[in-house]
Amino acid sequence: MSHKIKGGCQCGAVRYSTDAEPMVTFNCHCTHCQQASGAPFTTAVAVQRENMTISGDVIEHTQTSDLGTLVHRFSCAKCGAYVYGISDGFGATAVNAVTLDDASWVEPQMEVYVSSAQPWTHMDPALPKFDKLPPMEES
């Protein structure tokens, strides 16, 4: 079954779309995701970076990840919704799953950066958890 990855912010100013299949869906507890969202973690759906079409005025905030590569986070300039991020290191765009027009298919596959999680964050005990990232190759 293919999942259309299409969505945007609550005011409608920022929209994104791709026909690419998701690479991975995960909950990220890193401090940057927490601070950028104002929430204890983000649930993100990642696709290959070059496949995403995005429109609308965004606020971009760039940080260096603990891997030494840049992560760019994008919020709607009008309503402040944190919509998506781009990882230079992984060559991926990750949209925050709650911003999908249809999030009914979303099931996080893992929890990452749990070493940074807040002590009161409630996680699904069945999901694999990684202090930082699972073993993988960067593109």
């Binding site: 912010c9 609550q10 950028a36 969202s37 104002g38 929430a39 204890p40 973690f41 983000t42 649930t43 309503c79 402040g80 919704a81 944190y82 919509v83 998506y84 925050n96 709650v98 911003t99 009161w120």
Partner: peptide, 13 residues
Amino acid sequence: RHCQMTSGSTHIP
């Protein structure tokens, strides 16, 4: 829904 969409997360504490 507003807290979800604002944060890009499932809830806001």
